[in-house]
Simulated scan of single mutants.
Amino acid sequence: MWLAAFFGMATKYSEALLAVKYRTVDENGQMSGGPMYYIKNGLGHKSYSGILAKLFALFGICAACFGVGTFTQINAIVNSVEITFGIPGSDTAIIIALLVALVTIGGIKSISRVAQLLVPFMALSYVLGCLVIIYFNLENLPSAIALVVKSAFTPTAASGGFLGAGVMLTIQMGVARGIFSNESGLGSAPIAAVAARVREPAKQGLISMTGTFFDTIIICTMTGLALILSGSWTAGASEAAYMTNTAFAAFLPTAGTYIVTVGLIFFAFTTILGWNYYGERCVEYLAGVKGIRPYKAVYVFLVAAGGFLSIEAVWIIADIFNGLMAFPNLIALLALSGVVVKETEKYLKTLEAEKTGTHAYSPVNREVRAEAGPVVTDEEE
Rank of each mutant, 00 (worst) to 15 (best):
9 M>D: 05
14 S>P: 12
26 D>Q: 02
34 G>L: 00
46 K>V: 14
49 S>W: 06
55 L>G: 12
57 A>M: 02
58 L>Q: 13
64 A>K: 08
64 A>I: 04
65 C>A: 08
67 G>M: 05
73 Q>T: 11
73 Q>V: 11
76 A>C: 06
78 V>C: 06
81 V>C: 02
84 T>G: 04
111 I>E: 09
113 R>H: 13
116 Q>K: 14
117 L>N: 13
121 F>N: 06
127 V>E: 01
131 L>F: 07
134 I>Y: 02
136 F>A: 09
136 F>E: 09
156 T>K: 08
161 G>Q: 00
163 L>M: 14
167 V>F: 12
176 A>E: 01
176 A>V: 07
177 R>V: 07
179 I>S: 02
184 S>G: 08
186 L>N: 12
193 A>E: 04
194 V>L: 05
195 A>G: 14
196 A>W: 08
200 E>S: 05
204 Q>Y: 03
207 I>M: 02
213 F>P: 12
213 F>T: 02
214 F>K: 05
215 D>W: 05
219 I>E: 03
220 C>G: 05
230 S>N: 05
234 T>V: 07
244 T>C: 07
251 F>G: 11
252 L>C: 03
260 V>Q: 00
261 T>A: 01
262 V>D: 05
264 L>Y: 07
269 F>G: 05
285 Y>L: 01
294 P>N: 00
295 Y>D: 00
307 G>L: 00
315 W>G: 02
344 T>Y: 01
